[in-house]
Amino acid sequence: MENGVINIEFWRLISAYLFIVILLWLTKRRGINREKRIIIATIRMSVQLMLVGYILMFIFDHPSPWIVFLIIFLMESFAVYNIYKQLDTPLTKKLKFVIAFSMIAGSIACLFYFNLVVIHFKPWYEPRYFIPIAGMFIGNSMTGITLGMKQMVENFSKQKHIIEGALMLGAKPEKATKDIVNSSFDSAILPTINNMIGMGIVFLPGMMTGQILAGASPLVAIEYQIAILIGIAGSVGISSFLALQFGYKTFFNDRVQFLPNEKNEK
Rank of each mutant, 00 (worst) to 15 (best):
I72C: 01
M142T: 13
K172Y: 06
A100G: 13
G53E: 15
S183A: 10
L91P: 08
N182H: 11
L147K: 02
P127D: 14
S183Q: 09
V181D: 00
F114D: 04
F121P: 03
G135L: 05
M149Y: 04
I71V: 10
V68Y: 06
V181P: 00
L70P: 08
I99T: 05
G165M: 06
I193N: 11
P127F: 04
H120E: 14
N155G: 02
I163R: 00
P63F: 03
Y113P: 01
S183Y: 09
K122W: 07
T177P: 01
F97D: 04
P65K: 15
H120S: 14
F78L: 13
Q86G: 12
M142W: 05
V153D: 01
S64T: 13
E154C: 07
D186R: 09
V117S: 12
I72G: 00
E174R: 11
F185H: 04
D88C: 07
E154L: 15
K172V: 04
I193E: 06
S157Q: 15
T146V: 13
I162A: 06
K85L: 12
P191E: 08
E126H: 12
G139K: 02
H120L: 05
H62W: 10
L74Y: 07
E164S: 06
P132L: 13
T89A: 11
A176W: 00
M168Q: 15
D88V: 13
E174W: 06
A171Q: 03
G53M: 14
V68M: 10
G53F: 13
I108P: 03
K160T: 12
G139Y: 04
V153L: 15
I67H: 12
P132G: 08
S187M: 11
H120R: 11
Y54A: 12
F69S: 11
S141L: 01
N115F: 01
M152W: 05
P191A: 09
I119H: 02
I189H: 04
I55D: 03
F69G: 08
I59P: 02
